[in-house]
Amino acid sequence: MRERLTAPGSQVLSPTHHSLAWGVPAGVVPGTLHVLAVTGGITVSPQEGRAILFGRNRPDVHVCVGENDRRISRLQGRLTHSADRWWVSTTGRLPLRLPGSRLLFHQDEPIPLATGYTPMFVRGSSGREHLIEVHVQSGEAERPPTAHEAATQPPNTWALSPAERLALIVLGQRYLLHEVYPNPLSWRQAALHLNEIRPDEEWTHKKVEHLVLGVRTRMSRGGVTGLTREEVGEPVGNTLNHNLIRELLETTTLVPPDLRLIGYEE
């Protein structure tokens, strides 16, 4: 049954409360937990052993999620305070989807939440996505200063040679074309396309592979994860090149207008 919340600072959040992504009030005890769904939520101070429950069965949870969607479990998940941290675990049949597309299943061990904002999703019936917003209060010393008037900091792009850039645009063209489920081209497909647009450069699948491997190695040494066989395990498939292209897109190293270099019009 629902825990009686009597700790100082605990309060119910109404369904009309603004998204936790917009931030939470300053001056609250560090470690305070804020949880919000479309039906409302809760703010609770940290206390060893405290558990906040969320799921479909409104009478027996602190935060109701998907109350009219029978795909969501009556008790879908739990947020527990232990060892000065909040931990999230899945208790329902469906996994929680966390940032980075990580899926947390009920068989998995609880994982710690970082301070700040964490969105969690559960996929329900008919493609519905149910959002549980979580925000763990940071200390004032951790809160970054406001920067309203500061110049925007550009993303850190990766340096590529002209040949590397060309090969990667061809390899990742399905991503740049915004296909719904993109995959990298194979080495042979990329070489065929490159020979069509640059016939004098004598592209082979080995040449494409060598260039891309050099970029992956360089970026892996620069701190990007998911670019080596040791990290992703076997079978590798397209995973390494998929992760590579995603990183290049997210850092704006490659952008859709680059498609002009391989013959696509605006």
Rank of each mutant, 00 (worst) to 15 (best):
L103P: 00
L103V: 04
L103G: 01
D108V: 14
E109S: 10
P110W: 11
P112F: 00
L113R: 07
L113H: 05
A114P: 00
M120R: 02
M120V: 12
M120E: 00
V122T: 11
V122W: 14
V122F: 13
V122D: 06
R123D: 07
G124D: 06
S125D: 13
G127T: 07
H130V: 04
I132E: 05
E133A: 03
E133H: 01
H135R: 09
V136S: 06
V136T: 07
Q137F: 02
Q137N: 06
S138M: 04
S138G: 11
E140N: 09
P145R: 13
P145M: 06
H148V: 12
E149H: 11
E149W: 13
E149G: 09
Q153S: 14
Q153D: 07
P155M: 08
P155A: 09
P155N: 11
T157C: 13
W158E: 09
W158I: 12
A159D: 12
A159K: 08
S161K: 10
A163Q: 15
E164V: 03
E164A: 09
E164L: 05
L166T: 15
L166S: 11
L166Y: 08
L168E: 02
L168H: 00
V170P: 06
G172N: 08
G172H: 11
Q173F: 04
R174K: 11
Y175S: 12
Y181S: 11
P182Q: 13
N183H: 12
P184H: 07
S186V: 01
A190D: 04
A190N: 02
L194E: 07
N195Y: 00
N195M: 00
I197N: 03
R198L: 03
P199G: 08
P199E: 05
D200Y: 03
D200V: 08
